[in-house]
């Protein structure tokens, strides 16, 4: 379980990648990942390619982020979900609020 972040070459995209388990144990570090976001950033990608598990606390954290960044960020994309996680996001109607790729 870990979290890493990366800005794209042009500084316009921030990618937050979560490995293993996405749940409330990450509540601090997840918030921290976008707390000092570069004002240049236009898009945030939450990359779940290496995320095996998530629960409702992860959904809460994503909504929290959406709320915090609403003023500054146009798109928040949840990318590279495994099928079961994608289904969890769909069940939670997250596709209405996030760009799920």
């Amino acid at each position: 379980m870990s979290l890493s972040k990366n800005a794209s070459a042009d500084g316009k995209t921030l990618t937050i990648q979560i490995r293993g388990k996405f749940d409330f144990n990450l509540v601090q570090s997840f918030r921290q990942a976008y707390a000092d976001i570069d004002p240049e950033t236009e898009k945030v990608v939450v990359d779940l390619r290496e995320t095996d598990y998530m629960d409702s606390s992860a959904l809460g954290m994503l909504l929290n982020m959406k709320k915090t960044l609403a003023e500054t960020i146009d798109t928040i994309q949840i990318a590279n979900c495994r099928p079961q996680l994608k289904k969890i996001l769909q069940i939670s109607r997250f596709d209405k609020k996030f760009d799920i790729d």
């Binding site: 388990k21 749940d23 409330f24 095996d52 598990y53 998530m54 629960d55 409702s56 606390s57 495994r82 079961q84 996680l85 969890i88």
Partner: peptide, 30 residues
């Protein structure tokens, strides 16, 4: 929860469902 999911994933076929099983157990346990 994670340990239990790991144990259950050893049962043939269950591993495919591990994300869902994690979610169910995690919600109920928490």
């Amino acid at each position: 929860v994670l340990e239990l999911v790991d144990v259950l994933s050893r049962i043939k076929g269950i591993s495919e469902h591990r994300s869902n099983i994690f979610l169910l157990l995690s919600e109920a346990y928490n």
